[in-house]
């Protein structure tokens, strides 16, 4: 109401109907699930579309399977569910933790992981852990579907490779057995505030040596990314305080290389490095 533009409301009975609708009207349609981002955007008057396609009640999109190889879940799983699920806490504790940081209880009860991905905000809390997990997402159209690596999904802030006639229908990631995880976010205050920067880390430590290192960032580069140059510094090395510092600084260097030196760089450079170091230490369980 108020300054929210009007639209025609469409409630499909199933995914097939939703896809049919998108095939016809995709470019004039916005999809709503939880609506926690969309209603805010609409109130700001930046959203104008003809149709609102409500997928919030499609049970086909609310599922969670876990097996030896990994996890596959529907995009409608809420942040509250991710934060509280014992399975997520076991398989990917940093994802549970990140989901628990989203907004407030009220937001987490409505907001979905699929929405967090598709909205493509650079500061989406669940995205860095998902990228560190090598998450793939299924984009489905009427005729065909494709699996896309999450790190290749984002093209710019709030922009993705999702076509107007496609819909996100599944999210999958492998089980990283034996890995250690860390997630750190910086925000103005703990509750409610959006993350200014976040770092997700997954480390495979075998006999004291890092066999695989994954560092994913949120709000550091224009889109969430893996920082491979920093990961390489850690791989096949025995972690020590200097090495962690060096790898952390490398993340900050990547940021500067990409965005250049800005007025905010004297602040952000040490902060990015410090956050990375904290995330690595968390993963390693050291202080």
């Amino acid at each position: 109401m108020g300054n929210i533009n009007n639209f025609a409301y469409v409630r499909p009975e199933n995914v097939a109907q939703a896809l049919d609708f998108l095939a016809e009207n995709g470019s004039e349609t916005r999809i709503i699930a939880g609506g926690t981002d969309l209603l805010v955007e609409m109130r700001q008057g930046t959203e104008n579309f003809k149709y609102l396609l409500d997928i919030g009640n499609l049970s086909e999109l609310r599922f969670f399977h876990t097996g030896q190889n990994g996890v596959e879940m529907g995009p409608l799983m809420t942040h509250s569910w991710l934060a509280e699920s014992e399975e997520i806490q076991d398989i990917a504790p940093f994802l549970a933790q990140a989901a628990g940081h989203v907004g407030s209880v009220q937001i987490r009860n409505r907001g979905t992981v699929g929405g967090n991905i598709v909205t493509a905000s650079p500061c989406a809390d669940t995205v860095p852990p998902l990228i560190a997990l090598d998450c793939k997402i299924k984009l489905q159209g009427v005729q065909e579907s494709r699996w896309v690596s999450l790190k290749e999904f984002f093209t710019a802030p709030y922009e993705t490779v999702l076509a107007p006639e496609e819909m996100l229908t599944a999210i999958a990631f492998p089980r990283l057995s034996g890995y250690r995880f860390g997630f750190v976010r910086l925000a103005r205050r703990q509750a409610m505030a959006k993350a200014r920067m976040s770092i997700a880390v997954a480390l495979d430590l075998q006999g004291g040596t890092v066999k695989d290192a994954r560092i994913a960032t949120g709000s550091v580069l224009p889109t969430p990314q893996r920082i491979e140059s920093a990961e390489k510094l850690l791989t096949n090395e025995v972690p020590n305080p200097e090495l962690l510092k060096e790898a952390s600084k490398q993340v900050a260097r990547e940021m500067i290389e990409y965005s250049g030196r800005r007025w905010s760089t004297p602040y952000k450079e040490p902060v990015v490095a410090t956050l990375t170091e904290r995330a690595l230490k968390k993963a390693l369980g050291v202080n």
Binding site: G35, T36, L39, V40, V105, Q106, I107, N109, R110
Partner: peptide, 9 residues
């Protein structure tokens, strides 16, 4: 469940 009624149509 608690929700913000300003964010629900």
């Amino acid at each position: 469940e608690a929700v913000n009624s300003c964010l629900v149509f």
